[in-house]
Structures are given as structure tokens and as C-alpha cells.
């Protein structure tokens, strides 16, 4: 099996295979990715970068599409839901 990447999601340590997306990493910690404008929890829908439901904060940058972003060693991911 390939190498693993370690990162945190809402402070919780998560390990995923190299090449996995931030979306996959978040899913190990929580099903809730973002809060909708009326405050409902949301999570990935399309898996391919077009629906924007998977937006999270990565290393302090908000509105990052988790499904398009490869998980990186030491990344700090924060969800909003």
C-alpha cells in the first residue's frame, strides 16, 4: 500500500493514503463540511469540483473545494458545520 499523509480536521488527526483529497480526509472526521446560508449542514455532492458544497478552510484559506485539493502533510482543515 502507498504512503500515508497526516493532517488535522477540526484539530483531530487524520491519516489518508497519498493522493487522497481533502474531502476524503474530512469524511474520516465528520460528515458536515459547510453550513448553508440558512445554517443547514452540507457535504460533497458532485465529487468533481462543480457544486461547491465541499468548501472548507485549508490552512486558514476559506472557500477551498475539498474535492479538488490533494491532502497534504500537516494541513490544517477546518469545517464550518
Amino acid at each position: 500500500m502507498s504512503a500515508m499523509v497526516r493532517l488535522t480536521v477540526n484539530g483531530q488527526a487524520v491519516e489518508v493514503p497519498a493522493g487522497a483529497s481533502v474531502a476524503a480526509a474530512v469524511a474520516h472526521a465528520t460528515q458536515r463540511f459547510r453550513r448553508s446560508v440558512h445554517d443547514a449542514p452540507r457535504a460533497p455532492l458532485c465529487g468533481m469540483g462543480v457544486c461547491f458544497e465541499c468548501r472548507v478552510s485549508v490552512d486558514g484559506v476559506v472557500h477551498v473545494r475539498a474535492c479538488l485539493t490533494p491532502a497534504g502533510e500537516g494541513m490544517q482543515v477546518i469545517t464550518d458545520a
Binding site: 483529497s21 458532485c46 465529487g47 468533481m48
Partner: peptide
């Protein structure tokens, strides 16, 4: 969508 997510490592 779920197929794509699974390939990305979604559990």
C-alpha cells in the same frame, strides 16, 4: 459523484 469521491479515498 460518490464514485469520484471513493476514488479520492472517501471511506
Amino acid at each position: 459523484g460518490l464514485q469520484a469521491l471513493a476514488k479520492q479515498g472517501w471511506p
